[in-house]
Design a protein around this nucleic acid. Sequence first.
DNA 1: GTGGTCTAGACCACC
DNA 2: GTGGTCTAGACCACG
Lengths: 131, 131, 131, 131
Amino acid sequence: MLFRIQPNNGIPIYDQVVRQVKYGVAAGAILPGELVPSVREMAKQLAINPNTVSRAYRQLQDDDVLEQVRGTGLQVAADAKKLCRMERSELVRDRFRSVLAEGRRSGLSDDELTKIFNSELKSLKREGGES
Amino acid sequence: MLFRIQPNNGIPIYDQVVRQVKYGVAAGAILPGELVPSVREMAKQLAINPNTVSRAYRQLQDDDVLEQVRGTGLQVAADAKKLCRMERSELVRDRFRSVLAEGRRSGLSDDELTKIFNSELKSLKREGGES
Amino acid sequence: MLFRIQPNNGIPIYDQVVRQVKYGVAAGAILPGELVPSVREMAKQLAINPNTVSRAYRQLQDDDVLEQVRGTGLQVAADAKKLCRMERSELVRDRFRSVLAEGRRSGLSDDELTKIFNSELKSLKREGGES
Amino acid sequence: MLFRIQPNNGIPIYDQVVRQVKYGVAAGAILPGELVPSVREMAKQLAINPNTVSRAYRQLQDDDVLEQVRGTGLQVAADAKKLCRMERSELVRDRFRSVLAEGRRSGLSDDELTKIFNSELKSLKREGGES
DNA sequence: GTGGTCTAGACCACC
DNA sequence: GTGGTCTAGACCACG
């Protein structure tokens, strides 16, 4: 599993870590029972402060995605995959809803919104390869 | 023109003011040459801090949507309408792009994304009436 | 409302802050809608680091006890009182359950446990005044 | 004598071992003069790290429950039974005191505390059989 | 080795 | 003024 951080893009670093772990679990790249990299190692890999990683891991524990094995590290919880998959869809759905609401409030018609959506999806497909 | 503010919904208040002015101009509800309410009056109307209105107006001047008429107030710039209409699309387009990028990064396929988009558009149509 | 911190008594400082706020809300000493002291002021009052207070306040937000009023501070949520009262009972109940389980596992009879409970309750009443 | 370990239940593993030995001695299941299993064997039995057993045994020696017999192993001290019986009560008493203190600090009355205690004792009796 | 806690001090956005 | 984020570095308990 590879993680990447973009500093100063508006999203807090700890939150970027949280999301990437969740996405990794949802996609099956990180399996339940597997140990995540230690706080210090992850910090070194991402070139960020251990405290920041620690905060991300703490949140992941609060969200029942990680669980502590004392003196050993943090492992992905047994039912984390199901949980992350659901959360992932909900999150994207919420963001779509908010964009659409904003778009209509600003006076754009459904046709215009759909047109924009399709053009962006196509452009993304060109850049990013197949999905 | 009527404005509505939702405090603490995540979007900064000054930004809500900026957007609503731009949307109003884009939709033709506020016409070029028209004077916007004074900082104090707008603040009273929206029950927010005058500093916040002031910041919004400053940004609208930076964005060439408003211009100062010495001793009189702020008026909508001559070419503001065209500008706002373009920006409106660009903004929505950017947000679509970011949602889509996030969705694919999280492992969702284009089909799944399109499905979510359509379901949300339909649900919005049900609630909010025609566009 | 008065807060007191005991450093190095095993309970993390941020947790002591969290509990005292919740107890204050549950007991009605802090009312819904009221602003809690600012991070910096609370830190000064308790002679601890602002970051520690910040962490406590963040948790209280996660627990829906506090909510942010942007640029103004943190206020007690509308339904925080009910929430804190319930949590308070549950917490005490859980601790009783664990003490009792431990006591019986260690071979003490119900009579012995009840005797100990009563003697401690009486001694507490002597020291601490009426409840 | 049979030991059971619950990893990650909040109580350190070495402490669980310490307590179970003490409870065993207090209840008469382990007799003074008897040899406890070697560090390695105990570790294998409980499927825990030998270091952890070692730490527990060290603490039991500090508490005068075990004593070293050079070249042979660790045996239960002559007066360990009396000692453990006393400590057992004290430990439970301390925990009652702390729960009660916490409960009253949180604003619960003595009546409420007693009610909670009784209800938990009854529920424990239902589940766990007579004491 | 592991994570958790705390302190200190800096910078930012918002009102 | 407010809280939020991040960094740096120290100390502790646990296995």
